Structures are given as structure tokens and as C-alpha cells.
Simulated scan of single mutants.
Amino acid sequence: MSTSKKKRSIKSRYHHGNLLSDLKKYAVKLIKAKGVTHLNLRDLAAKCGASATAVYRHYESKEHLLAAIAEEGFNELQQVMLKAKYPNKLQEIGISYIHFALQHPVKFKLMFGTFFEKDKYPALLNASNAAYLILRNQVEEGIRQGIMVNDIDSLTRTAWATVHGTAMLLLDNQFVIQKHEIIDSNEIAIEITTVLGKGLFVKPE
């Protein structure tokens, strides 16, 4: 293939914004294999078959790319949390949160890591807050129905801390007590969110 044809092929490939998607996809793969420190925009451009100039046109630094991946992660997390249904909606939100973390470990750790300052990226901050509000709104609904104690912020923080901590412990394989022990992450998620629910709901007199 001639150089001119190759250039036309690359241009056609990314005409409709495929480059943005490919950059994030390959970045996640590279981070999973080698870690964040080995992520390099020029190498990533070569992997995608694009020029470094094209990449820097979208992301001026590695930090910007990482923030974009985290933003995408929060938007995806919102979607899975919104699928939770009654009668155990709060528990389903918690379980879906844990499942998301286990299915997308690289994105999840970027979302809550210290690789960038969220305040510098308004879209990322909005996506993060929107995910939190899904949980908070469900707690508020429980309070309105009289089935949860009236302390919305404390309950929301407790619920979030519990499911987030569970997700991180599962990701780091910290629930294994004995060598070669097999842990069912779904059972752990159900168990912990069930106990959490018992603690948050009003006890019948």
C-alpha cells in the first residue's frame, strides 16, 4: 500500500470520531497490562494508527485522557445503577455498583484515584456527582416512605462507603482468608448489602 493510500485509510477510519473511542479503549488495555505510568500518548497514537498530532488535538496531556476515561466510567456506572428495581432497589444499586467495579477494574480505579484533580474537569465532576445522587435519591425515597431513619447524608455516605469498600476489597482479593480459597463475589455483594439494608432501615416496634 502506498503512503498516500495509507494516509487516506487512517483519515477515513477516524472520520466519525472513532479515534476518541479507540484511544480510551487501548489506554484501558495498556493500563491493565502495564499500569498507568507506562501510558504514553505517542505510543497510544501509534497503536491506534493515528498521528500524535491527531491525539493531542483531542487530549493535550495524559491526564486529560485519564479524566475522559473516568468520566466515561461514571456515565456507565450511572446506567447500571439506574437499572435497579423495586422492591429491593437500594440493595440492587449497591450490588450493581460492586459488579461494575469488578467488571471494569481499570476504569473504576481511575474514577476514584488520584491521577488528576476532578475540579479541573467539570464534565467529570458532574458525572461523578450524578452517580452519587442516584444513591442519595434512593435513600431520600426510603426516608419519605418512613422505612429509613431521617438522616439522609449520613445514610448515603454510610451506604456508599460500604459498597465502595466492598468493591475495593474484592478487587484487591482481600476477602481470601485461606490460600486457594474460592470467593464468590456475587454472594459477598448480596451478603454485605443485605446487612447494610438491615442497619439503615427503621426497626419495627
Rank of each mutant, 00 (worst) to 15 (best):
R42Y: 08
G49T: 04
A67D: 05
G49E: 03
S51D: 09
K85I: 14
Q78E: 09
A52Q: 10
L82K: 01
N88H: 14
E92H: 14
Q79H: 06
K83D: 02
K47Q: 11
L39E: 01
R42V: 08
R42A: 05
Q78M: 12
S51K: 10
V80D: 00
G49R: 05
N40H: 09
A52H: 12
K47E: 08
L41R: 03
Y56K: 05
R42K: 08
K62T: 01
K83Q: 09
P87F: 10
A46T: 15
F74S: 03
A50Q: 09
D43G: 04
G49Q: 04
M81A: 10
Y86E: 15
Y56V: 05
R57W: 14
Q79A: 09
A70G: 10
P87K: 07
G73Q: 05
H99D: 15
L77G: 07
Y97D: 04
H38W: 01
V55D: 05
Y59F: 15
R42M: 01
A70W: 04
K83G: 00
Q79W: 05
L77Y: 09
G73S: 08
A70T: 08
Q78T: 10
F100A: 07
P87R: 09
Y56Q: 02
E72T: 08
E60M: 05
Y56I: 06
F100L: 13
Q79N: 06
E71N: 11
H64D: 06
H99A: 14
N40D: 07
A50S: 12
S51R: 06
L77H: 11
Y97S: 00
E71H: 12
N75Y: 04
K85T: 15
C48Q: 00
A45W: 11
V55A: 02
D43M: 02
P87D: 03
S96G: 04
H99G: 06
K89N: 01
V55Q: 03
L65D: 01
Q79V: 10
M81C: 10
A50C: 07
I95T: 06
S51N: 09
I93A: 07
A46H: 15
Q78S: 13
F74C: 03
N75H: 07
A54I: 04
A50G: 05
A68Y: 05
A54W: 10
M81E: 08
A84K: 11
H64M: 08
Q91F: 13
K89A: 00
L82I: 01
F100V: 13
I98M: 03
L82C: 00
H58K: 11
A54V: 08
Y86W: 15
E76Q: 12
H38Y: 06
E72C: 03
K83Y: 05
A84L: 11
K89E: 03
A68D: 06
Y59A: 05
M81N: 08
E63S: 07
I93F: 14
S96L: 06
R42G: 00
T53L: 01
E63W: 06
H58T: 14
H38S: 04
E72H: 07
S51V: 10
E71C: 13
